[in-house]
């Protein structure tokens, strides 16, 4: 089919990479870059424009109003917002570290398996589902297990007669457990390739110089993996910090996290002059995530130095 010339276009242009130099005429450039226009227009409309709406809204007074710092300053002055940011960051730090440690151990336990074997693929498919697609459904998994009528609660009740108090599940502590539950598989997915990347020769080299297993990890494996591990912690932080679905399902009332506070703002009665507080909160989230991502980029550069 490739050899048929029937469908040949009348203008058989030179193919190959665009020359893209100073000599390219306007129409030539248009022909080279034109086909990329739909993609860029789409991203501009549905990703860049919303960002602009958030950023501009955070500094505006609302309908027809001028510029203001009121919305943004509320992030620092209103106790509920300060508390929400603090709680979100605490939750994210805690579950990122717990998830990273447990997930790294899991990755270490799994790394020996054949990368193309069924076991590995089952584990990673399962981890992918739990890490990425869970949200509300994971909250229901915990209700079904640790809720008042859940599997564990009823089992302990019927076997020992002790009725567990399951109200912890519906607090920030419970949320921390559920968040850790989806952070662990995310860590596995993110960290396993780095662990796979450690080479036999490095271990051999260490061993032939008289190194023990401990000294290998202390002086070779550990330092090589450290940037990947740190980067993963930051990634997990962002993941927990941004999460909304699980939090909304578990903490059905209250605005105790930033994401919940934003939804409270969106759903509540709009008070005059306060329309854009939600956008200021959103901007605050962007700032936090950007800082973390910048740190991540630095670490990533370092991580790729060794494991090439």
């Amino acid at each position: 089919m490739t050899a048929r010339l029937a469908g040949a276009p009348s203008t058989s242009r030179q193919v190959g990479p665009a020359t893209g130099g100073a000599d390219s005429s306007r129409s030539k450039r248009l022909r080279a870059y034109g086909p990329l226009a739909p993609f860029h227009a789409y991203v501009a409309l549905f990703l860049i424009f919303p960002t602009v709406v958030v950023a501009a809204g955070a500094f505006s007074q609302g309908e027809g109003g001028g510029l203001t710092l009121d919305n943004v300053s509320q992030l620092l002055t209103r106790t509920e917002f300060v508390k929400a940011f603090t709680a979100s960051i605490q939750l994210a730090v805690l579950t990122a570290i717990a998830g990273a440690v447990i997930g790294a151990l899991l990755a270490w336990a799994v790394v020996r398996s054949n990368p193309n074997g069924v076991f590995r693929q089952l584990v990673i498919a399962g981890a992918g589902v739990l890490a990425q697609f869970g949200g509300v459904m994971l909250a229901f998994a915990f209700f079904a297990t640790f809720g008042p009528k859940g599997l564990i609660t009823t089992f302990i009740d019927s076997s020992t007669g002790v009725t567990l108090d399951s109200s912890w599940l519906y607090t920030l502590n419970g949320l921390a457990v559920v968040y850790t539950y989806f952070q662990v598989p995310l860590m596995l997915i993110v960290f396993l390739p780095s662990l796979d990347g450690l080479r036999q020769e490095w271990y051999d080299a260490s061993a032939s110089l008289g190194g023990t297993s401990w000294s290998f990890w202390r002086h070779v494996g550990g330092p090589i993996l450290a940037p990947s591990f740190l980067g993963a912690v930051l990634l997990l932080f962002t993941n927990a910090f941004s999460a909304y679905a699980t939090a909304a399902a578990i903490i059905s009332q209250g605005c105790s996290l930033v994401t919940l506070a934003i939804s409270c703002q969106m759903n509540s009665e709009v008070i005059l002059g306060q329309e854009n507080v939600g956008k200021a909160l959103a901007l605050g989230m962007i700032v936090v995530v950007s800082l973390v991502m910048a740190a991540y980029a630095l670490i990533q550069r370092r991580a790729s130095r060794w494991v090439k």
Binding site: W108, V111, R112, N114, P115, V190, F191, P193, S194, L195, D196, G197, L198, R199, Q200, E201, W202, Y203, L225, P227, S228, G231, A232, L235, Y296, Q300, A303, S304, W306, V307, K308
Partner: peptide
């Protein structure tokens, strides 16, 4: 994100 790009076949010395 891909952290610390992995070598496709050189890995898993622990294997």
């Amino acid at each position: 994100f891909q952290l610390g790009a992995a070598e496709p076949h050189g890995g898993a010395f622990l294997a």
